[in-house]
Design a protein around this nucleic acid. Structure first.
Lengths: 220, 220
DNA sequence: TGTTACATGTAAATGGTTACATGATTGC
DNA sequence: GCAATCATGTAACCATTTACATGTAACA
């Protein structure tokens, strides 16, 4: 088992335009790279489901975006040869990349368009019988509760790996990231609470309907 | 300039494929139409910012989607001539449309990809000084609090217009819709709380940094 | 006279997903 | 042999935004 991870220095940097337009996924990647160098594969794992805490993306978007950021000079990569693994490109953020990220972070405020498929479905639940709606809500609650548990696990794991005390000190390098991950969890908790409340209301209604039915009245 | 709002009956209905693929925006439109007929213009107002409670869209997406739904036979429209306004098309949902909406609502659960630009920004705030970060958070909190106030206003207005008691009865036709709108407000409240918490933590940090700089006691 | 509201579309470009494509290594 | 993990890319398609395009009426 000869393990000789070699480095072939080939840092590349391209000329950047005045204010090149970077999509949000680009800033999400820059934010990740600002705290640690990563390969495209690792970034894909950080940003792909189920680890979608802030901005979900797949590898087919990550790799082209890394090429874009490289063209802009916002990131640079090193080719790393591995002998028992495919070669990889380890990306890190550059000075201009840090500047671009800072400028983006400073400007705002940011309008966040709401695009929540299950909220649409929630509004459409009145097309179903209370019983059918209860089934849909039950399944959704299970899904979201699993996601919440996964985020909690990840937060604990994260804190242990980096020896972050509880509560994390506000001057820690990862403090803002942890706040954002917690927010993503809290948003899911808020959603799950709403689903549970609607479920309760509808099942109470279903029950009273059943009582009415057993008193010889026709449903719907 | 005679005032004669006429109706020219021209309900159209096209042959539908077996299981035509409808994007989420289509179901959002069907959900709106399931509770009341609307024109494309009205739908645009319901779905466009700032009234983006579940699924944001602009008119350039709404009109083509209505054409798609018409081709599928899920909606039908009436041409309504108005003399002191441009003519309009009033769309309503059809039987097959209701069926398609019900089938979509029943299946799931629905993975909701997280794609929140401000959460990315939140994680990137550590690139800024505490003072700069505090400014960004302050502006964002103002924005979101305005949106929350607008949703509350809309809910009150809605309840008054439709004579819905407080709390709304769970068997009301609009109950699921109201629940979804409340959820969209609660999600914004959760986000605002997180922004405020981070703001507090960072401004305390900023203050202690200032104390260190001035070698003086804490002001206030 | 200019702006807003009403009313409906299309075109071009960008953003994002799904599927295609390849290939080595580890473990069952 | 077969699946999973590591590793990187491209092509085709679908979804969304921004800009182009038009016209009337009410209001200030």
């Amino acid at each position: 088992m000869s393990k000789t991870p070699q480095k072939k220095a080939s840092k590349k940097r391209a000329a950047s335009a005045t204010h090149p337009k970077v999509p949000t996924i680009g800033y999400a990647i820059l934010t990740s790279l600002a705290h640690h160098p990563h390969t495209g594969y690792e970034l894909t794992q950080l940003m792909g489901p189920p680890r979608n805490y802030m901005w979900e993306a797949r590898h087919s978007q990550v790799y082209p975006t890394l090429q874009l950021l490289t063209r802009y000079g916002y990131v640079a990569f090193e080719d790393v040869q591995q002998d028992s693994r495919p070669d990889k490109k380890v990306y890190e953020i550059t000075g201009p990349g840090i500047e671009a990220l800072r400028n983006w972070a400073k400007k705002g405020p940011t309008h966040v368009p709401v695009r929540d498929e299950f909220s649409v479905k929630m509004a459409a639940l009145r097309m179903l019988s209370p019983g059918e709606a209860v089934a849909v809500l039950t399944r959704q609650i299970e899904l979201v509760e699993g996601e919440i548990a996964a985020i909690n696990l990840h937060l604990v794991d994260f804190a242990r790996r980096l020896d972050i005390p509880e509560p994390p000190p506000s001057d820690h390098r990862q403090f803002c990231l942890i706040s954002a991950i917690r927010l993503s969890r809290d948003l899911k908790i808020t959603a799950a609470d709403a689903y549970r409340k609607l479920l309760d209301d509808l099942s109470r209604q279903e029950e009273s309907a059943r009582v009415v039915r057993t008193h010889a009245k026709r449903p719907r």
